[in-house]
Design a binder for these strands. Structure first.
Length: 957
RNA sequence: GGAUGGUUAGCUCAGCUGGCUAGAGCAUUCGCUUGACGUGCGAAAGGUCACAAGUUCGAGUCUUGUACCAUCCACCA
């Protein structure tokens, strides 16, 4: 017994235990309790049942707050419990690029640090700088996950913009295109006429301003003496009106519904239609419908059209262009006027015709650009949509049939309601940070408004009608890679030098055994090529010869590497200084023969020549290049832009195989990126797939996340997994509530009431924090942070600690190993009545806790354990058992020495040990740190493992 | 306006398929305690489970309605 005296010190013990787990790779599914660490292949084939959870990826732009990490506590309960019942378990962690929020945060950072906007930086630079910024933050966020005890396999951690993930996400879009599920449709966007860009809602803000509410008379077409009066703050948009809308229940307008009105100042006639969205009380109860320049109007139009007969449908007419000037099918005198000016002119003209009934003052919220402060013009723009009809039906079915179960159950009502009302999904976003849409145009895609006020797209002056038309005309391609020729580049075979991170391009010796093996592996991994281009150096040449088989081999000096510092961007002198060992041992004798080192620019030029050569001579061939690391770097720099798919790296045998595209000139990629949920929705199979574990761990078991993204995220994962994999992504959804601030308020950065996990962990320990998340809380319900409760849980940990100390103190002379946590035959443990009583209760508790966890009532399971261990085991049993286990009385004389007493003492000791071990195991999913720490001290049976993580759940049958 | 929850002790919340003489933590009051633990132990006090009606042998638990609160979504022409 080596437990230190005094109280349990969580903050000191926990980091050491975490290190112990990580060092021993216990979090990997490859860890096997008897055989140790298996290879991935062996793990896939071993017989253990599987269990997997994909951790919802936290935003990678900031450290999580105490609420953000709460989910990991629940996920970890499931992970650890399933390990204890003998399954092989995968927790799949990841980090999210966070689309819009990410871009906003990055823009802010770059602006503060460098006074540069993203436009100053340019798209490519912005993307790359952002990427490295995120990469730097990710390990810190990962540590936050580990510190709370989340036992996921961090070696398999993935970033959402990891090329392997990107490839899968974009591939889904390409597949949808082939299945005719994507289309371009018009949609209202926030257009900032000053910044000349589309803004996401989050990039806008609202300001109050006083404006005129103008009441305009629209005469009846049949009888100009009668009219309908509409109220508007944007009089000039009347030129784009396509209907007047009233409440269907409004008696005032009963007679005019379905008839036509004459639209003043124009020659057009517009119908009167109805919508339940209209409020009779506002204005005159009649709304002028301008679907092209008001979001609500657009929605009303869509709803009306989805119900109405074809001849009754209403359209939209765009009358404002991207300079906020009037355009479209309107009288000449208004064309080109800016909106503010146009409003005055329009009101003036209407007044002259006697069509203004009155003008009232009205306070209105206008939307302005957050940065430019310009008034946002809602305009029509062509956006990408996904037809959800085919997606939603199976996703509704699986929940209705219970193939995917949602906990708490009532949340499935929310899910079904959302799904049944789901409309086509607009997936494009005008951002730079994210997955750029894999559509390529032969020239710039121009959006214009034609004389009818309709949005039109053209490429190179040729009008296109949607993506399928554009592809047919040869003006667009939908594919992951840029149009061009794919080439494969393989690093030539050598193994000795690169361990130091150094290339050995000048090393002109022949292939060694490892090199030959490497080349042979490459043969199988790569397949056949038409042409293999290699440098004249013998190693590369030899590798190429083995791989080439029947292919034509081209040797060229262009591929030779003559800049030794390329890898690290060093000059020869810097290189020699940095790697003296390498220069001395490996290259000294060859150095005199080497041509002078080149500058990087010179090498780049040779790479350019090489690319030109391939284009010219082998453009229709399958080309493989065998070359050196430094040259590969140059290729990457030249060919891999932000379309991550182009720098894909595929390493089946730890070979360095790079697939790159030599782009065909003239193709321009679509400017937009995907809605974050389009990629997040694929996170389950994108991650498991990128780690090549689909056969073993898919579908996953539990998706544990916050209830507020059930509709946004969970629904998309279900739809997209069914579509791409033909499988559900998970069988169960567990939704936890949101952690609120101590005062019951929602925690948010803007309120300044966020609490960092460290703040709590330093004070109370991660185990206490986990108990706060779990004990007595039910799925879906929020709860405030309570320092009183944290204090209580800290005391509970201390209780566990001290009870263990008692057991260990008075059982140190118990030497037998019949002390497995096996409650199946209690009479084998003890015949004593008290012992039987506590053991029976522990047995019942074991079954109950198990049932609670398996039925997703983990709050009840934790609470039961807390109560029972403390108030039954500690307060009652230990007090009662004391006289039986003491070996000396108050004066120090030996007691409990008679044969009966000794036997009873032994039974008591065995009971104490088995009871304690059972509690530790049951508690482990909830408080992993302290239970692991105590497990180290506890006497073991033959079946016990060194770590508590992989020991056996107490046997009760 | 739509959807979904909540309303149980002074506070924060549990209560799974109806059996409850309604629980926990914290707070309150009284007492005890020196060989696991004062981060302890024992006990007390505290609730017509929002309100109303219904189903049932039996309702905190099921049904309907009302009131208030919360969250999400949609919007303010």
């Amino acid at each position: 017994m080596t437990l230190p005296k005094g109280a349990y010190n969580a903050t000191q013990e926990e980091p050491e235990i975490l290190k112990y787990w990580l060092d021993n790779q216990f979090f990997k599914p490859e860890y096997h309790p008897e055989k140790g660490l298996l290879s991935t292949e062996e793990m896939k084939n071993d017989g253990r049942e599987t269990f997997s959870i994909v951790n919802p990826p936290p935003n990678a732009y900031m450290r999580p707050h105490i609420g953000n990490v709460s989910g990991y506590a629940y996920q970890d309960v499931f992970l650890r419990y399933n390990r204890l019942i003998g399954k092989k378990v995968l927790g799949q962690p990841g980090k999210d690029h966070a689309g819009i929020q990410g871009e906003v945060v990055l823009e802010k950072i770059f602006w503060e640090n460098k006074k540069k906007s993203k436009h100053d930086m340019g798209r490519e630079k912005f993307y790359k700088t952002s990427y490295s910024h995120f990469e730097k933050l990710m390990p810190k966020i990962m540590y936050d996950e580990q510190r709370i005890g989340l036992s996921s396999d961090y070696d398999r951690n993935l970033f959402t913009l990891d090329p392997r993930v990107v490839e899968r996400v974009l591939g889904t879009f390409v597949q949808m295109y082939k299945d005719k599920m994507v289309y371009k449709g018009v949609r209202i966007v926030n257009w900032d006429p000053v910044a000349k860009t589309t803004l996401a809602d989050i990039d806008t803000e609202r300001v109050e301003r006083e404006t005129d509410l103008v009441y305009i008379k629209y005469p009846y077409a049949e009888d100009p003496s009668k009219f309908v009066t509409v109220a508007t703050t944007r009089a000039e948009t009347m030129l784009g009106d396509t209907a007047v809308v009233v409440d269907p229940k409004d008696k005032r307008y009963k007679d005019i519904v379905g008839k036509k009105l004459k639209l003043p100042l124009t020659e057009r006639e517009i119908p009167v239609i109805t919508s339940p969205r209209i409020e009779q009380e506002f204005g005159t109860g009649a709304l002028k419908l301008t679907p092209s320049h008001a979001y609500e109007d657009f929605v009303i139009m869509s709803e009306w059209n989805s119900e109405a007969e074809p001849e009754q449908q209403v359209g939209y007419i765009n009358v404002i262009d991207k300079d906020a000037k009037l355009t479209g099918p309107i009288p000449e005198k208004y064309k080109g006027l800016e909106t503010d000016e146009a409003r005055k002119v329009v009101i003036h003209d209407l007044q002259e015709q006697g069509l203004i009934e009155k003008i009232e003052k009205h306070t209105q919220n206008v939307v302005i650009g957050e940065r430019s402060k310009a008034i946002i013009e809602p305009i029509m723009s062509s956006q990408w949509f996904i037809d959800v009809e085919q997606l939603k039906k199976p996703a509704i079915e699986v929940v209705k049939k219970g193939e995917v179960k949602i906990h708490p159950e009532y949340m499935s009502k929310k899910y079904l309601h959302w799904m049944e009302n789901l409309h086509d999904w607009p997936v494009s976003r005008s951002l730079w940070w994210g997955y750029r849409i894999p559509v390529w145009y032969k020239g710039e895609l121009i959006e214009t408004i034609d004389t009818e006020g309709q949005v039109k797209e053209s490429i190179n002056g040729i009008e296109i009608d949607g993506i399928y038309d554009a592809v047919e005309k040869g003006l667009a391609k939908v594919q992951i890679d840029a149009p061009g020729q794919e080439i494969t580049i393989l690093r030539h075979g050598q193994t000795d030098a690169n361990e130091k991170g150094i290339i050995s391009g000048w090393d002109d010796t022949n292939l060694n055994e490892a090199g030959i093996k490497y080349a042979n592996q490459a043969v199988t991994a790569l397949g056949d090529f038409d042409v293999v281009i290699t440098s004249t150096l013998s190693r590369a040449k030899e590798t190429a010869q083995i791989i080439a088989k029947d292919a034509e081999i081209i040797e060229t000096d262009l591929l030779k590497e003559r800049n030794f510092g390329l890898l690290n961007g060093l000059t020869w002198d810097e290189f020699s200084e940095k790697y003296p060992e390498h220069v001395k041992n490996n290259t000294a004798e060859y150095q005199p023969e080497l041509p002078e080192a080149e500058t990087i620019e010179e090498v780049e030029e040779r790479v350019d020549q090489l690319i030109a050569m391939i284009k010219e001579q082998y453009s229709d061939k399958k080309v493989l290049l065998v070359t050196h690391t430094g040259i590969i770097r140059i290729f990457k720099r030249k060919l891999a832009d932000m379309s991550a798919a182009q720098s894909r790296q595929d390493d089946p045998e730890n070979l360095e195989i790079h697939k790159m595209i030599i782009p065909e000139s003239g193709w321009i990629q679509d400017n937009d990126v995907f809605d974050t949920w389009f990629s997040s929705g694929q996170w389950t199979y994108a991650t498991i797939g990128a780690n090549d574990l689909m056969d073993t761990f898919y579908p996953t078991n539990i998706m544990e996340t916050a209830y507020d993204i059930l509709e946004l995220w969970v629904s998309r994962m279900i739809m997209l997994s069914l579509y791409t994999q033909n499988k559900i992504p998970f069988t169960d959804v567990y939704l936890h509530g949101l952690v609120k601030a101590p005062d019951g308020q929602k925690m948010s950065k803007s309120k300044g009431n966020v609490i960092a996990p460290e703040e709590i962990i330093d004070q109370f320990g991660a185990d206490s924090l986990r108990l706060l998340y779990v004990v007595g809380n039910k799925a879906g319900a929020g709860y405030p942070v309570s320092y009183e409760k944290l204090e209580g849980y800290k005391r509970f940990l201390n209780k566990i600690w001290n009870a263990s100390k008692f057991v260990l103190n008075f059982t140190s002379d118990y030497e037998e190993t019949d002390i497995a946590a096996d409650l199946s035959k209690l009479e084998d443990i003890s015949t004593n009545e008290l012992d039987q009583k506590i053991l029976t209760e522990i047995k019942e508790v074991t079954d109950k806790v198990q049932e609670h966890i398996e039925k997703y009532r983990i709050g009840l399971g934790a609470e039961l354990l807390y109560q029972h261990m403390w108030h039954t085991f500690c307060d009652e049993y230990i007090e009662q058992v004391k006289p039986r286990v003491y070996s000396r009385d108050q004066e120090g004389n030996p007691i409990n020495t008679s044969p009966e007493e000794a036997a009873s003492r032994k039974e008591a000791q065995r009971t104490l040990i088995i009871a304690l071990k059972s509690y530790l195991i049951l508690l482990h999913p909830f408080v992993p740190f302290i239970t692991e720490r105590l497990w180290k001290e506890v006497p073991k049976s033959e079946t016990d493992t060194e770590t508590i993580m992989y020991t056996h759940w107490p046997k009760t049958k």
